Computed example of a mutant assay.
Amino acid sequence: MAAKICHQLLGAFLTILVLQPLVVKSRPVKLGSHQRSCGCPGGPTSGGLDVNMNNSLSSERWLKFPVTYGFRSGYVVPPGLDHKAVTSVIDVAFGKWKAAVPDPQFAFQRITPGDNANIKINFTPLPGYHGYGYYPPNGSLYLDNSHTSWSTKPSPAGNEVDLLSAVLNVVGHTLGLADSTDSNAVMYPILNYGSIKRNLSPEDISRIQNLYLYSMSHLELAKSI
């Protein structure tokens, strides 16, 4: 009996050893947003956002289209990433947000270099964060190049951050969306290492439509009067 108990305890101990790396690898990735208009990353704000009943920002949005985006001059892709792959991921992310709003006016255009773009993209050290997006009219989009192992592979490793999943979130911030409390949403501020979230959730789509589709239709009505 004693031998059996010892065997069970040894088995439980080995199980903990095996599972421990998985627990470590599931630590959260922090994605942030900020309303303050400036040219550098800042800490998350705790207030000052104009939020309506649909949980969408009702004023921080782009008013002229197409909204342009591009990389700042002299930006450097972190080691292990390919420039073309990164550009493709950025294009795909903007394409997914565009597809969510069925209005031809809601469009984006990539320009090179992106120093004069509405949304300026750059890799820079982001202590405590992996991605950071500023609301309009700033539109700055930052991705970490100091402590993040980015992945553009179909399946990221357990210690990597999926670039498309993170970019979808920070692009949403640069379009005017605040964080979501729905863990299934792209706009949820936490993304686990090794996980993917590459498609907008119904809540993401509803929020971006509330922010742009409704307001743009009223803009057209005002023009016609």
Rank of each mutant, 00 (worst) to 15 (best):
R27H: 01
K223M: 05
P136S: 13
T148G: 05
D91P: 04
E220Q: 13
E220R: 13
K84S: 14
P136T: 08
S215A: 07
D179I: 02
H83D: 06
F13E: 15
H130G: 15
R27Y: 03
G42S: 07
F106C: 00
G39K: 13
L49G: 01
G70E: 09
F71G: 10
R207G: 02
F65A: 08
Y132V: 05
N138H: 10
Y132I: 02
S149E: 08
F108G: 08
W97S: 02
G70N: 14
P102T: 01
C6I: 08
G48A: 11
L163R: 03
G131P: 00
L31H: 00
V76M: 15
G70V: 02
L221V: 15
G42Y: 00
M1N: 00
N54S: 10
N52G: 03
G194I: 05
D91C: 05
K30P: 12
K30F: 11
S195N: 12
I205P: 00
L57D: 12
V51L: 06
L9H: 11
L14D: 15
E60I: 00
G80T: 04
E160Y: 15
I190N: 07
D182A: 15
N192G: 12
A157N: 15
M1D: 10
C38F: 07
V92F: 06
L10T: 01
S180G: 14
I205E: 02
V171I: 08
V67Y: 00
V86S: 05
G32K: 02
M216G: 02
S73Y: 01
Y129P: 03
P156E: 10
N116W: 12
S183W: 14
Q35A: 05
L49S: 02
S149V: 09
K30N: 05
D115P: 08
Y193E: 09
Q209W: 10
W150D: 04
S33R: 12
S56Q: 07
G47H: 03
L200N: 09
L143T: 02
